[in-house]
Every structure is written in structure tokens, then in C-alpha cells.
């Protein structure tokens, strides 16, 4: 892999939320590489830091967040970039599709005008030209052009999400971050939105970071997956391989919690809770919930282990891979 292939590189990134009585380490020494044209899925349960990581990349963390480490976008560290330059990178280079919360758009303005506003914040072009661009993108994401004059509350959840996607594409970004883009939508609509995202990613030749808690959805859209647990990436691998043969006990547990059509396989929820991120954690973060954990796991933090070109943050990654410790091992 040559240097030119890498679009985004995250090195040793930490994000700490500072509040009056606690310091919460939401992202803890994360390394990540994203190649051009690649879709990387960040998978993990709520509170694992996946959204914080996404927000850190586009630079919209709240004021009480403390960031250290590097985020190299096209070789430039954007963590230390001055506000003004960062504002130009936002949306021109990196755009984001947010979770379809009811209020991702201004309720008092027509959706078309809101998209025009975003274009005009970056480009000095006539208004009509911006309007033409918006209508163009509306048809591209499958919205009728007369939706331009609609207000957000007049649209269905799916249409609203299409508007948000059109908004993300306005300036031809190179990286699209999609943060739980299908949450709160009907299942049938979810699939439409996922297909739309896959389609536009191809068409715009973008890279994508897809943030989700659903490992099946992640597998459907992504080339590679990074599994996050308690602020750290615990396993990263090509999606097919990761799902077929997880090398980290947490990933194993995640795949077991999946619904399958095979009735003989019982769906297993993961017992216990993730650790409190405001406290110092010694050893492996998953140790308390891990069925393979030994004393060493609680004493010492496992390193990232390379196994067949994949990485897993587990002392037993090799054994799991060689089936010394089985991932089809279910309870006692």
C-alpha cells in the first residue's frame, strides 16, 4: 500500500470529556487507517466512543472535550488546525450524515434553502446556481424536486434522511462519516438508505466511515470493520473475515448476539456492563465480561496482536485463531 492510498490516518487519538466531577476517557489511544475508496465500519455498543471518534474527525466536539494525538487527513494534521481552516475542510472534504433524530434540520426553514445556505457558506456563486445544485442532488438521492420547498416536519423520516444525505454531498466531499444513519427508521426504509449510501459512495468515489451498533448492517455496507469497546479499538479486519472468524472475545460475543435464521443457535446477549470510563482501568477492558479471561488479563493491558494481517487486542488472539480456544464455545 503506497502512501497516496491513505486518505485518513488517526494516530494515538485520545478524547477526554471534562466535567466538574469527572474526566471521562471516551476515546483512548485509537489508531485507524482509512484508504481512498474504502468503507470502514466502526462497530460497538452505545457509549463505546464511536460517535465521539466520528465527531473528532470532523471537528465538532463540545468545548469540554480535550483532544490529543493526530488526525492526518491527506497528510495534514487537522487536530491542531485553526478554526477558520477547519471550517473550510468541513463539508468540502469531510461531510457527515447524522442519525435521523427528528431535528437534524432547522424546523423553521424550507429544506432547500437550508442546503443552499450550506453551499453559499463555502462558495461565492449566484443563489440560482446553488439552487440548481440542490435540485440536482435531490434527484440523485431520489427526492422529487418539489420537496425543495418543503419544511422538515412535512417529510417522512426516510425523505428527511435523504435530504441530509443530499446535504452531505453538496460540495463533493472525499470522506463521508455516517453516524447511525438508519436509527429510528422503518426496517424497509433502513435498507433503502443503506443502499443509497453504498450507491452514492461509488458514484462520488468517496471513502466512508460508517458508525453503527449493528454488526450485520456494518457487514452489509463496509469493506473493513473496526470493533470498539470502552474507548478502544479491540479488533480490526476485512468485514467478511471478521464476521466469519472473529479474533477478539468481544467480537465473538457481538456475533453471537446477532439474530440468525438457524434455530439451533441461541441468541446470546452479552452479560454485564462496560467499565466506568471515568476511572483508571488496569488490564483488559473486556476482562470482566470475558469468558476466556485469566488473571493476567485483569493485571495487564493486552497489546494489539497481528494475526494473519488482522489485529486483535487480546492475549489469546493467536489461540482463538488456531481454535485452541474456540469461538464456537458457548458457555459451559
Amino acid at each position: 500500500m503506497s502512501e497516496g492510498d491513505v486518505l485518513l490516518e488517526v494516530r494515538d487519538l485520545c478524547v477526554v470529556y471534562e466535567s466538574l466531577d469527572a474526566r471521562i476517557r471516551a476515546v483512548d489511544h485509537v489508531d485507524l487507517t482509512l484508504r481512498r475508496g474504502e468503507t470502514l465500519a466502526l462497530v460497538g455498543e452505545s457509549g463505546c466512543g464511536k460517535s465521539t471518534l466520528g465527531n473528532a474527525i470532523i471537528g465538532i466536539l463540545p468545548a469540554n472535550a480535550e483532544v490529543s494525538g493526530e488526525i492526518l487527513f491527506e497528510g495534514v494534521n487537522i487536530v491542531s488546525l485553526p478554526r477558520k481552516r477547519m471550517r473550510r475542510i468541513r463539508w468540502e472534504k469531510i461531510a457527515m450524515v447524522f442519525q435521523n433524530a427528528q431535528n437534524s434540520l432547522d424546523p423553521t426553514l424550507r429544506v432547500g434553502d437550508q442546503l443552499v445556505e450550506v453551499i453559499l457558506a463555502h462558495r461565492s456563486i449566484p443563489r440560482v446556481e446553488a439552487q440548481r445544485r440542490v435540485k440536482e442532488l435531490f434527484s440523485l438521492v431520489g427526492l422529487p424536486p418539489d420537496y425543495y420547498r418543503s419544511y422538515p416536519h412535512e417529510l417522512s423520516g426516510g425523505s428527511r434522511q435523504r435530504v441530509i444525505i443530499a446535504m452531505a454531498l453538496l460540495l463533493n466531499p472525499q470522506l463521508l462519516i455516517a453516524d447511525e444513519p438508519t436509527t429510528g427508521l422503518d426496517v424497509s426504509v433502513q435498507l433503502q438508505i443503506l443502499n443509497l449510501l453504498k450507491d452514492i459512495k461509488q458514484r462520488f468515489q468517496m471513502s466512508m466511515i460508517f458508525i453503527t451498533h449493528d454488526i450485520a448492517v456494518a457487514n452489509y455496507v463496509s469493506d473493513r470493520m473496526a470493533v470498539m469497546y470502552a474507548g478502544q479499538i479491540v479488533e480490526a479486519a476485512p468485514s467478511q473475515a471478521l464476521l466469519a472468524k472473529p479474533l477478539h472475545p468481544y467480537t465473538i460475543a457481538l456475533t453471537e448476539s446477532l439474530l440468525t435464521l438457524d434455530r439451533r443457535v441461541k441468541k446470546q446477549p452479552i452479560a454485564g456492563f462496560p467499565p466506568d470510563l471515568s476511572k483508571t482501568i488496569t488490564g483488559c477492558r473486556f476482562a470482566e465480561r470475558c469468558r476466556f479471561a485469566v488473571d493476567e488479563c485483569r493485571r495487564e493491558e493486552p497489546p494489539m496482536v497481528d494475526v494473519d494481517g488482522r489485529v486483535s487486542k487480546c492475549f489469546f488472539a493467536e489461540q482463538i485463531s488456531n481454535k485452541v480456544v474456540g469461538y464456537d464455545y458457548r458457555g459451559d
Binding site: 434540520l105 432547522d106 424546523p107 446535504m167
Partner: peptide, 25 residues
């Protein structure tokens, strides 16, 4: 609210955020 974060992420200026979206709402 969430839509303010949308416009922040989209690189819309602070003045527009406060005096257009903020004022209207």
C-alpha cells in the same frame, strides 16, 4: 438542538448560526 450541530459540521459561519437559525427559533 441537533440541527445546530448539523450546520456547525457543515462549516456554516457562527453569525448565520446564531442570528439566522438561533433567532428564528
Amino acid at each position: 438542538e441537533n440541527f445546530i450541530r448539523t450546520f456547525e459540521a457543515a462549516g456554516v459561519g457562527e453569525g448565520t448560526i446564531v442570528f439566522r437559525h438561533g433567532l428564528r427559533n
